[in-house]
């Protein structure tokens, strides 16, 4: 039977968190947490594989104590086991450190797992880096932004749309795939499932020590980047004014913004060179 690990993350429920001018930090406390939407789709992808050919699904998260909630939700959706990595010394890990910690937990708790799924990106930081870096840690073939997975024996077939190319990739287990937002519309957890996830399931909590992570190896394998400050994007728009006859206004506008527009619409709107 396939052994699947799904790595999930709790994110704030709103995209626009109130900003505390005095302390220069986000009021995370004001937002309820939720399972990151792409992670929820990764859980759904795992459940669909389980329904088709049978699998044991372990969900794993790292976060503050409240993050346990997303594991319970994944269990309610149909995952079999939850693993919670929670330790204040791991707080503030960047993707480099997070992928190292997750890899350590997977190697310890789910050795020999066949497939690791992650959400392609999170709604709070949107780096999309943890999945690919976890693949490096575990030395696995990987594909990001998957829209559909097919398992046949030990072969995983991944369909995805990247940079406007529709690709079908194949790799052998063990492999890591990050799931995009495009397909795998997640199921709702039933209330029976939620109740059971809380009343009948134990979730082991792993701290850094349990994972063999010490201050020394965190120094060696831990965060590379440092967030120096976070600030609000200036809301004052540039408000460029263009006047004049319509035809000349159009030319002025298009000449000035052609690259920005081209990047969005995917077509060049560069003026024909004058012969």
């Amino acid at each position: 039977m396939l052994n699947i690990v799904v790595c999930i993350k709790q994110v704030p429920m709103v995209t626009e968190l109130p900003w505390d001018e005095k302390t220069g930090t986000l009021r995370r406390d004001l937002a309820a947490g939720m399972m990151n939407p792409a992670c929820k789709r990764a859980v759904e992808a795992a459940l669909q594989i389980k329904e088709k050919q049978g699998a044991s699904i372990t969900v794993m998260t790292m976060g503050p104590p409240a993050a346990e909630e997303v594991l319970r939700e994944a269990l309610a959706m149909g995952a079999d086991r939850g693993i919670f990595i929670c330790d204040p010394i791991l707080a503030g890990s960047d993707t480099y450190a997070t992928s190292f910690i997750l890899a350590a937990a997977i190697q310890k708790e789910v050795p020999g797992c066949d497939l690791i799924l992650c959400g392609a990106y999170t709604s709070d930081s949107e780096t999309a880096q943890v999945g690919p870096q976890l693949a490096e840690e575990l030395n696995m073939p990987a594909a990001a932004y998957a829209e559909h997975l097919d398992v046949s024996g030990r072969i995983l077939r991944v369909r995805r749309l990247v940079d406007n190319f529709r690709e079908t990739l194949e790799m052998e287990f063990p492999a890591l795939v990050t799931i995009s937002m495009e397909r795998y519309e997640p199921r709702y957890a039933s209330f029976a499932g939620l109740n059971k996830a809380f009343m009948e399931t134990d979730i082991p909590v792993l701290n850094a020590e349990a994972l063999g992570i010490t201050a020394e190896n965190l120094e060696a394998r831990g965060s590379r980047t440092k967030v120096r400050r976070v600030f609000i994007r200036k809301t004052q728009k540039e408000n460029v004014r263009i006047t004049g006859a319509a035809a000349s206004a159009v030319s002025e506008f298009l000449d000035r913004y052609q690259w920005a527009i081209s990047a969005v619409i995917g077509k060049s709107i560069e003026a024909e060179k004058q012969a």
Partner: peptide, 11 residues
Amino acid sequence: SFGGNMLAEIV
């Protein structure tokens, strides 16, 4: 960061 509402200065 946070859906583009915030910017982070990273080094």
